[in-house]
Design a protein around this nucleic acid. Structure first.
Lengths: 334, 334
DNA sequence: CTGAAAGCGCTTACAG
DNA sequence: CTGAAAGCGCTTACAG
């Protein structure tokens, strides 16, 4: 089977490959009739553009790298995988492929740049979830656009797209307070990730605003220093509500409370974050925050695309507001 | 910042770029000392190989396409995402990137080839989960290696890697029978996917082998013609055990049974497939089958890599045996 | 609107 | 072991 390129199409039509190139990439410089004929013939001959050849001239790969730390995807049901899927779908609409690369802990520690960067396979990189700070500092030296997704770094000029965890935490807690709750626990290790910390601070802001004293004895750890979930310690005196830093933890907590004979939401209300599967398979379903991933993703794609065209551009931290999804795990009390 | 290529390295060392090329790609034709020095200088200059240029000569992209139907990844916790992650990690060990492409229903129906193929971005394609038959027939015409992962097609020459669903179904059911169960229901729509069908046939084989009559009234649908999960109809007379075609369905069934006052495994045993999160978050944990994804993935990567080097090679259907993971959802009866 | 020529950054025979 | 030359399949000024 003969290799077919633009020259073969040109030959068949008795024109130059320059015209073929222009016709196929919708550049001006060919008549509309010729463009149509060229596309027809290309299609019939089963022509596939060799993007590598184009890349050599244009210095564009039409690929975006998506970096994920291995630790975030140990679970079969890892959340970042689905975000990655969304990004890939979005990229597809602008003629770009996404290349996911999973960064192992060794790679991070050794400070080895991602393959997609070292081999110039991508025009830009989206970092999905926080990597180690030294590794990120290293990454910040790359010569192609870089954005952080779902986290940010203090003292860093890298553009980031994030869920507005702070404000969502505030609104969710406020909602509990408006439903009469005043002893509200927070479940989550507040130094583990910026997301947890921001959600916690939003929770705290709601308390302050409503003039409720912060009770540190009901700020409950949910993971150890490696980020591994640990058993949740239920306070001796049951608070009237729990703000959990994610649905998974809310689910686990609810199972534990139920096994202790606590009925939810009758005896105790529980809320979570993420609007994930866990909030729907639990009984009752968990009131939670939807982060509007769709919006976060389309923003990220838009931003990185603009950065590729215009590397100087600065967008800073973009916060995407979430939406409270009211389900069945909160009860109004007096 | 000056663009740095092999010529710049060559210049700095006072040698030709041919030698640089050979040194960097570990080809013979350079002395060992020179190779070391070249690599050193390349590193220091921050050289990144332009893979696109290499591709142009070698006609290899060092990328593999991974196709997933959108319908399989609507869930945030989609199983195929994690398989895709495993494939990507495995590919990385052989210096290859994986490019995931999500095939929308419209694309399938319109018979549009995947972008990664049309733009020659990949050296081979792994199809993750069954696509529509007409689309697969179309795909089978591509001029690069193709393998099916986790399914196969009758009357198709395409190599496939699958979990041995049939044998796992057989062993799992046999295990129940050996624990004294004789009224065993099967939950799963047996025409929905080949996986479900094969698991069902294994179940049936176990019944035959143990001389238990097949009772069609306890073969229970779990999804509609669109593959969407439906409410499970519990038989009027409770069987002593349920073989569910996946953990998720087993989980849902158990919740339903529990809400009806059935205690598991005391009143009724339940088993599932996939060793997924669902088998662990349920109470009790569900006895299930682990499909040995690790082995499936490494086999798939090995096979497609060999096919790229030797396109004629035929491997047929490769079945990877699963392992029963014994948990807490089965009780021995007499 | 159309096309001849140069060139992107590598690799591959081939010659020394 | 070392390197000059050709070429992979496109795109991009530039000239007509």
């Amino acid at each position: 089977m003969k290799r077919i390129g633009m020259s073969e199409i040109a030959e068949k039509l008795g024109i130059s490959k320059v015209s073929v190139s222009k016709a196929l990439s919708d550049k001006e410089g060919v008549s509309e009739e010729l463009r149509v004929r060229v596309k027809e013939v290309a299609e019939n001959m089963g022509y596939r553009m060799n993007i590598a050849a184009r890349s050599l001239k244009t210095d564009r790969q039409y690929n975006i790298g998506i970096l994920i730390a291995e630790k975030y995807v140990l679970d079969q049901e890892a959340y970042y995988f689905s975000v990655c899927g969304e990004i890939i779908k979005k990229l597809d609409t602008i003629g770009t492929s996404g290349i996911m690369e999973i960064i192992k802990e060794e790679t991070e520690e050794a400070g080895i740049m991602p393959r997609v960067y070292n081999e110039k396979k991508v025009d830009g990189i989206i970092v999905l979830g926080q990597l180690s700070i030294p590794y990120l500092r290293l990454l910040e030296n790359i010569s192609i656009p870089l954005i952080y997704f779902d986290f940010y770094l203090n003292k860093s000029d890298v553009n980031s797209i994030q869920a507005d965890n702070f404000y969502s935490g505030y609104r969710l807690t406020e909602y509990l307070i408006e439903n009469g709750h005043r002893e509200i626990a927070f479940v989550g290790s507040i130094n583990a990730t910026t997301s947890i910390q921001d959600r916690y601070l939003g929770y705290y802001k709601a308390l302050i605003t409503k003039e409720i004293e912060l009770d540190k004895s009901i700020i409950i750890e949910d993971r150890n220093e490696h980020g591994i979930l640990i058993d949740i310690e239920v306070p001796k005196v049951l608070p009237s509500a729990f703000v959990c830093n994610c649905d998974r933890v809310a689910f686990t907590l609810m199972e534990k409370l139920k096994s202790m004979g606590v009925e939810i939401p009758r005896d105790c209300s529980v809320v979570g974050f993420d609007n994930s599967l866990f909030s729907n398979i639990s009984n009752p379903k968990i009131t939670t925050v939807d982060h509007n991933i769709e919006k976060m993703v389309s923003t990220a794609v838009k931003v990185i695309n603009k950065m590729i065209d215009n590397p100087k551009k600065v967008y800073d931290r973009i916060l995407i507001p979430g939406t409270i999804i009211y389900k069945d795990s909160v009860e109004k009390i007096n």
